[in-house]
Amino acid sequence: MLIGIDPLLSPDLLHALRSMGHRQDIAIVDANFPCEPGARVIRLDGISATAALEAVLSVLPLEVEEPASAWRMIAHDDPEEILPVFADFAEIVDRHSPGTPLTAIDPGDFKAQASAAYAILVTGERRLYGGIIVRKGVVPPSVGA
């Protein structure tokens, strides 16, 4: 255990987050998400995607120099449909990175982007469309550094 680190951040997950570079993605996906062979998969079975997102964003800055740095799937072919899991994701993203939109993308595009991510975090999330991709930003230098 470490002081100040969310206990959901397992050693493998902390290693992946620390190893990621600027503008690399991590996909946080539901329990039904198909993972490609060879992908860097980290499992958090029994943990919701929202709890995992909260833990990840407690240490991972989001990219702010691009139009989008957080993506979710379009549900039922309707980009305007906001499922409860989408509202939960949006609230968490906004709390950690105010003003960052949650961008809706086609499920096929989501799966392709998730498969290309630096890591895929498979959760125990059972809500359909319960996945989000976030892009790592930078930690600015300290004042006077």
Rank of each mutant, 00 (worst) to 15 (best):
T50K: 06
E125F: 08
H96D: 05
S10H: 08
I26F: 00
L83V: 09
I26Y: 00
Q24C: 14
F86D: 13
P7S: 14
T50V: 11
S69M: 07
L13A: 15
I26W: 11
V56D: 07
D78Y: 09
F33Y: 14
R126P: 03
L17V: 03
L8R: 15
V122A: 05
V85M: 05
A119V: 10
R23G: 06
I132T: 06
G130K: 05
R127Y: 11
S69D: 09
S19F: 09
A75L: 01
L62P: 04
L44E: 05
H15E: 15
G4A: 08
R40K: 14
T100F: 00
A116T: 12
T123S: 13
P34M: 09
D94H: 11
L9R: 09
A55T: 04
E54N: 07
M73V: 06
P79N: 08
R72P: 02
T100H: 01
L17D: 10
A51N: 09
E91M: 09
Q24G: 06
A119C: 13
A49G: 15
D78R: 14
V85T: 00
G108S: 15
E66C: 09
A114Q: 04
A116Q: 15
S97N: 08
A51C: 07
V29G: 02
R23Y: 11
E36Q: 15
R72W: 10
M1W: 14
P34Q: 03
G108L: 10
P141V: 09
L8A: 10
P11I: 07
A117V: 11
I133H: 14
T103A: 07
S97P: 02
E91W: 01
I74L: 05
E54I: 05
L83W: 11
V139Y: 04
G99A: 02
H22N: 03
P107I: 03
F89Q: 04
S115P: 05
M73D: 02
L13P: 09
V41C: 13
D106A: 14
S115V: 03
L128A: 12
P61N: 02
A117T: 00
H96L: 02
D25L: 13
D106S: 11
V85Q: 01
F33E: 07
P84I: 00
V85P: 02
A39N: 15
L9F: 06
E63M: 12
V139D: 02
K136N: 00
M20G: 11
V93D: 05
P101E: 03
H15N: 13
G38N: 10
D45A: 10
G108R: 15
S48A: 10
L14Y: 05
A116S: 12
S10G: 04
P37Y: 01
G131I: 05
D12P: 07
F89V: 09
R43H: 11
G108C: 00
P7Y: 00
G144L: 14
V85C: 04
V143S: 05
R18W: 11
L60N: 00
I26G: 06
A117D: 04
L128G: 04
G46C: 08
L53G: 01
D30Y: 02
A87R: 12
V122E: 12
V56K: 01
V29R: 03
A116D: 15
P67Y: 12
L102F: 12
V138H: 03
